[in-house]
């Protein structure tokens, strides 16, 4: 299905530079770009309204509406094949890379529908970072992996400092600070995934999307990643897809439950979902009666 080789997206003709995101000062890294008022935690940053996705004639998502709050960890859980990753990939329009995919509905990032005609998907992905299921560092040095996004987006600054900060935030600095110029592929699985996290946050996106980031890792690495996620939410908004319910229960503030057919059945505070869900099907899923 995926054909990452082709990019079937609209090409807006404007030739303006990409939006400058940060000034040189280190402090700016910790806040968002100028002109962007830091809202109180809990305000909606991603809002989906009746989002439908089709792959050819198969419907993958049906009428998804949800509001993801700022600086929270929002988990999306559900049995396999019910559209969780598809929804995630709508947020940064990675689905555009798939020829057969068709998206309907509205998906707003900070109030602007990302599927509007004038939105450039490439510019969008500079605001929304992504970490994939299987760690996929580039065959470059650790340093170059982290700076890749900065180079692509034309971000100026003290790259050494940015790299250190990103690696610290990803809880990897201590382990690699003395070998930044070794290949990223030499690291263990868990380290590689943390490198991918560092790579994704180095350009300081607003939102961090994580597609089952720990599913390919061993338990020790998994718990390291989980510890990380809670801290990341202080800087970014994290939306994480996971098929591991316990993980969702452990780390998320809000949880969305997707069930078969690509339907969002319930979306609420994590505690409510796991202790006292509204829908019977959700309760059945949580208690393991199916899925």
């Amino acid at each position: 299905m995926t054909d990452g080789h082709s990019e079937a997206e609209t090409e807006p003709n404007a030739t303006t530079d990409s939006a400058t995101m940060t000034d040189d000062s280190e402090d700016e890294l910790k806040t968002h770009s100028a002109g962007f008022e830091s809202p109180p935690t809990g305000e909606t940053i991603i809002e989906a309204e009746d989002v439908n996705v089709w792959y050819d004639d198969d419907r993958a998502l049906e009428d998804i509406s949800m509001a993801v709050p700022e600086h929270n960890v929002t988990a999306i859980i559900g049995p396999s094949g019910c559209g969780k990753s598809t929804f995630l990939r709508c947020i940064n329009r990675m689905n555009d890379l798939i020829d057969d995919a068709r998206v309907d509905g509205t998906l707003k990032l900070a109030g602007k529908n990302v599927y509007d005609e004038d939105v450039d998907p490439v510019a969008l992905r500079r605001r929304v970072g992504m970490v994939f299921q299987k760690p996929n560092p580039f065959p470059k040095s650790i340093y170059d992996n982290v700076t890749y996004g900065l180079e692509m987006q034309g971000i100026d600054g003290d790259y050494d400092a940015i790299v250190e900060d990103a690696l610290r935030e990803a809880a990897l600095w201590d382990e690699v600070s003395d070998r930044l110029h070794e290949s990223g592929l030499e690291l263990s699985g868990g380290q590689q995934q943390r490198l991918c996290i560092a790579r994704a946050i180095a350009p300081d996106p607003e939102v961090l999307l994580m597609d089952e980031p720990a599913s390919a890792l061993d338990p020790v690495a998994t718990s390291q990643i989980e510890d990380l996620i809670a801290e990341l939410a202080e800087e970014y908004t994290v939306v994480i897809v996971t098929h591991n319910m316990q993980q969702a229960a452990r780390i998320s503030d809000k949880t969305a439950v997707f069930l078969t057919g690509g339907k969002l059945v319930e979306f609420d505070d994590t505690q409510k979902i796991f202790e006292n869900p509204e829908h019977q099907r959700v309760e059945d899923y949580i208690t393991g009666k199916f899925g």
Partner: peptide, 18 residues
Amino acid sequence: MATDHADNTATVSRTRGI
């Protein structure tokens, strides 16, 4: 939040790619 609109409508030059 309202000022975010400007950021979200930025485009990246594709001429090099074309």
